[in-house]
């Protein structure tokens, strides 16, 4: 389980960093989206314990063994992060769109050249 999770994250980081290093703004935006997935997964995975249950406590209350559950804190943080990454992606997309309309190209080097 651990290795497979780690490998998924590794593949996501590979794809994200490859896309971010490309010349086209669209690819960079896609790369950022993939990278935020990778980051979210990392944080959630770090709170995961082997045979833990979802962090939902029984209705009955009373004393409970905290080690029987996965860590809820990373989950809560990632919940926030997922929503924010949507906002970031939306902003980046519009920015890419804006840049394309302004310069007529989405090639970063071309834009640098046009800006002088």
């Amino acid at each position: 389980m651990v290795w497979i999770l780690a490998m998924i994250i590794g593949v996501l980081v590979t794809v994200a960093s490859y896309l971010i290093m490309q010349r086209r703004i669209i690819q960079v935006v896609l790369g950022m989206a993939v990278l935020s997935h990778a980051a979210n997964l990392m944080i959630v995975a770090s709170g995961w314990v082997g045979d833990g249950k979802a962090p939902i406590v029984p209705k009955t209350g009373g004393p409970l063994d905290p080690f029987a559950y996965v860590d809820p804190l990373p989950q809560a943080m990632v919940l926030t992060a997922i929503v924010i990454s949507l906002a970031v992606t939306a902003f980046l997309l519009v920015l890419a769109f804006f840049t394309y309309r302004k310069f007529g190209t989405d090639d970063i080097d071309e834009i640098r050249r046009l800006k002088g």
Binding site: V2, W3, L5, A6, M7, I9, G10, V11, L12, V13, T14, V15, S17, Y18, M21, A38, M42, A45, S46
Partner: peptide
Amino acid sequence: IAIGLGVCTTLVMA
């Protein structure tokens, strides 16, 4: 470069 970073991430996460 990308695969190198990916492999390192895998190692660190594992």
